[in-house]
């Protein structure tokens, strides 16, 4: 923004501050994206389904328990149930959480291109990157809200079953969010090149799968460097390069470790801030990628 325009804006009286105007626009868009997003039927469907699964896990295990109960180890059986509930809930959050994340990240921008809302918005005094920032922020709000909702139910299910306060769940949910953030950022970047949400959705699923398989590349590298043949070592080095650059979502496995390790044998907490930093860096890459792709896009 040039100095001149600042002067104009501050002269308007009701508008104040350069920084304020930088933030207010994106924030308004984020709030609007949030309002629109929570009304999406697909997302609502996923959320309901996941809540159903989490809630239903209690009944499912009650059903299974009839075959596993035995009198001498009754106290142990209950814990098997708790474990199965835990597994179901962790899976439900992982599956539906990532689906919700991908769907919402893939659709917010293309939908607006499709229904032309973007014309009215981008003709306002608002840069494209600000628009993207608002949209991205709105997506994160929705993802966080979904995660909070699912985790709360999980929390209640665990508390009802085990009677102990599963406070570690908070850390697990936090790390889960940062894993979703990476996928969300890259899906969002892809969605900025597209006018329909189908392609970015598929791309998002691929990003998630690839992110989970990057450790394979390391195996390829380890096997390849032992080989004498030039081709093998070349493949190995390419695999290693990709391994270094691609986001490794397996790093976030700690979120499950937190839930499964006994409380007197906790995972090393030095990982948590590092994982958060990892998530943030990739989120920034994704957002900037979206910026570049969207900056000169013909709308």
């Amino acid at each position: 923004m040039s100095a001149e325009s600042t002067a104009v804006i501050s002269a308007e009286g009701s508008r104040s501050g350069v920084l304020g105007s930088y933030i207010r626009g994106p924030w308004a868009i984020a709030a609007y994206t949030w309002k629109e997003g929570i009304r999406k039927k697909t997302l609502l469907g996923f959320l309901l389904l996941s809540l159903l699964v989490i809630f239903g896990s209690t009944f499912m295990t009650a059903f299974m328990a009839s075959t596993t109960i035995s009198s001498t180890t009754a106290n142990v059986e209950i814990e098997v149930e708790a474990k199965i509930i835990k597994d179901i809930c962790v899976s439900a959050i992982a599956i539906f959480g990532i689906l919700i994340t991908i769907f919402i990240s893939a659709s917010v921008v293309p939908t607006e291109l499709e229904n032309k809302v973007v014309y009215t918005i981008l003709s306002k005094p608002l840069r494209r990157y600000q628009y993207l920032a608002g949209k991205f922020l709105g997506v994160q709000l929705i993802v966080i809200a979904n995660l909070v909702l699912m985790s709360t139910l999980f929390f209640v299910a665990l508390y009802a079953k085990e009677g102990i306060w599963p406070s570690l769940l908070l850390w697990s949910a936090l790390l889960t969010y940062f894993q979703f953030l990476i996928v969300s950022a890259f899906t969002f970047a892809v969605s900025c090149t597209s006018t329909s949400s189908v392609l970015p959705t598929i791309a998002g699923l691929f990003i998630y799968i690839i992110g989970n398989l990057t450790e394979y590349l390391q195996d390829v590298y380890e096997k390849g460097v032992e080989s004498e043949r030039l081709f093998d070592t070349m493949i190995a080095n390419i695999a290693h390069g990709l391994y270094l650059v691609l986001p490794n979502l397996r790093n976030f496995d700690m979120k499950d470790q937190i839930l499964y390790l006994p409380s007197n044998d906790p995972p090393v907490d030095i990982m948590i801030p590092n994982l958060i930093a990892y998530g943030l860096v990739f989120a920034a890459v994704g957002y900037l990628l979206a910026w570049v792709l969207f900056a000169r896009k013909e709308l």
Partner: peptide
């Protein structure tokens, strides 16, 4: 500028990724 920033951030992510593998 943004592309340069992306390159720098990718480098940072690689460093952080290596750090995480080390920690793991």
């Amino acid at each position: 500028h943004v592309i340069a920033a992306i390159v720098i951030l990718l480098f940072l992510s690689t460093v952080q990724g290596a750090r995480l593998s080390g920690l793991r």
